[in-house]
Nucleic acid binder design. Structure first.
Lengths: 347, 347
DNA sequence: GTTAGCAGTCGATCCGTACGAGTGCTAAAC
DNA sequence: GTTTAGCACTCGTACGGATCGACTGCTAAC
């Protein structure tokens, strides 16, 4: 909508300087600071004029008359969009990432849990990760296990995701029946979850008696697994970082934020809304998304893949006033390494 | 150590009144307030004397000269210990609990997840739950699944707990080998995890070739599952309640607290330390435990059982200044209902 | 178009005062 | 001996006013 080009190079430079200074100091920045710190050869008065113009255009705002300027969400957006691509990580960060991925980890969920912590440590904000949805994978095994009072349906995805759901146990169930069911369910291997469900239903149609009953229940369970992303828990790490970093946030704001992080469905929607299908990385700033708008938060997210198949999303949630350069570099680097690992792990 | 009896009935009554008033109002309570509110027929001067004595004994403390009294951890302890047993829930709470358990839920972990939310809603603090450790259960099924690049060991416990761990896949693995392994592992049914591990090792000893290799890896995985309570994730719900309720906590305190809640191992230790083996319910107040001492928190916990076998623990974490009567009533009631459900579910 | 200078604005800070809640003590009353 | 009334004292908190200082926005000169 607003091409940064039309700002002109000097306005752009000033906006950039304001954002960076504000992110650094946390305090509204005045024209003097910019005139001194930045090496445009102009005086503070000129900067003032430009800043007034930037405010007019909606990129900056004014807490009160005698204060400096603060970037608006639009200002951050422009800043982020015009960022040069060559993002460098600090050595310590690079080492932290390498160290993490040097550990041998075989279970993807475990890796993701660690990834949220890693991201949180790298950025000082909260790290999030959405594990692969079983829906997108093919099924490697469907198993029905007799627990006595109930039956347990176990579905294993190709990348090692395990989904379980209990179903009712028919009173007249025998071991043979269960074996029969097991044999039939073996044919689900290699299907996607919806396909598996359809096949299970079809199998049920061809089968009489108790076995049929169980198969129908299994099909229902397979349906539930798709419909409700129950197993798709969003992994979160480092909420405590937010509590300290965000020292200037209002208490209520923080409450809302932690609440939102707890609501898995909300985070899930946020991260899914946020990660455009083809994009490499997405940044959502404050009011650009209703959820984050409420609590002055931004989300930097990137997908990770196995080969060319998108598996899930990782990201960082922090205040709108965050160090986008560093965060984006971290998320990108971690996503890249994670994709490599996932590819190697679950080819 | 300190029998409340030796306080004398009046001191005890005053202590009780101070605790209740302080919990209610959140502000240091003065002698006048007690004299008026409570119906001991004595004047504020007498109360003052008694309060000075209680302070001397360590049950109360003084933020500063011209302020009222505040209970110490010891004061809360005495208050809790002398609580009458007849704890009543408010109707709304009773209904919330019944409503929750009226939903049909078949998966214990799902129930526990909901339980943390329920406890949090009932008490306005954070709810926690420790699911059954697989170690204590008997194994219903051990399965090795070929995921291509790795193998996945799946262990199902009698109550439906599922533990998974990836192991290396020998290069020369064939489907037959895997079937052989599977047949041997069938004999693990009904054993406890340590027994199963021993049996797996023994099986490995009796078996040659690749099969042996896999069995050894499985035994290792079974060992890992006992050693590291990796699957024993502590479930937590309602952290946001703490963020708002604890409006008077220092920011750093809150950061520490959320951090501690995030460290599963710490919470696990806390909850395990806290739940005495035979006790019905335990209350840990502030400095009584090193972890909670750091952040002025208390933990009210109760075990839940299936039949007479202890499965896990549920509890509530909140500020030392909490409404112990209500929280204890809630935790006790939920633990009772949960035990009934678990008994019915996993006889 | 840029810059220096200057008046004006408005929040933040500091300080002195007054207030009031609550204690602790003492002396009288029961 | 215990309880109570009275009172001086302490000490945090709220209030108000003056000052400070950081910026801006404007104007006039370059």
């Amino acid at each position: 909508m607003t091409e940064p080009a039309e700002l002109g190079p000097r306005k752009a430079a000033i906006l950039r300087a304001v954002v960076e200074e504000y992110v650094r100091s946390g305090e509204p920045v005045g024209s003097e600071t910019i005139a001194e710190g930045s090496n445009l050869g102009v005086s503070s008065a000129t900067i003032r004029n430009e800043m007034a113009a930037l405010e007019e255009l909606g990129y900056l705002s004014h807490p009160h008359t005698s204060a400096g300027r603060v970037p608006t969400d639009l200002g951050y957006r422009c800043y982020v969009d015009t960022l040069p691509q060559g993002l460098r990580l600090r050595d310590a960060q690079r080492r932290a990432i390498s160290g993490f991925f040097a550990e041998t980890m075989l279970d993807l969920e475990e890796v993701l849990r660690g990834t949220t912590q890693l991201l949180s440590r790298l950025t000082q904000y909260a790290g999030v990760a959405v594990p692969p949805r079983l829906t997108d994978e093919t099924v490697v095994r469907v198993e029905v296990i007799d627990l006595g009072p109930t039956l347990l349906v176990l579905v294993v995805g190709q990348h090692g995701a395990v989904e379980k759901q209990a179903i009712d146990r028919p009173a007249d169930l025998t071991g043979e029946t269960l074996e029969g069911v097991g044999r039939r369910l073996d044919t689900l291997r290699g299907l996607t979850l919806p396909e598996a469900q359809a096949r299970a239903l079809r199998l049920a149609g061809e089968t009489p008696g108790t076995e049929r009953e169980v198969l129908i229940a299994v099909a229902e369970a397979l349906g539930d697994m798709q419909a409700m992303p129950r197993g798709t828990h969003v992994l979160i790490g480092g909420v405590s970082n937010l509590a300290s970093e965000a020292a200037h946030w209002r208490r209520e704001t923080m409450r809302h934020m932690i609440e939102a992080l707890e609501r898995e469905s909300e985070m899930l929607m946020l991260l899914q809304d946020v990660s455009g299908p083809q994009e490499d990385m997405s940044v959502t700033i404050g009011t650009e998304h209703p959820s984050t708008g409420e609590w002055d938060a931004s989300v930097v997210a990137a997908p990770f893949r196995s080969g060319d198949q998108a598996l899930g999303t990782i990201g960082v949630v922090g205040p709108t006033r965050m160090d986008y350069v560093s965060v984006m570099a971290s998320v990108r680097a971690v996503a890249k390494r994670l994709s490599e690992l996932a590819t190697e792990l679950g080819a």
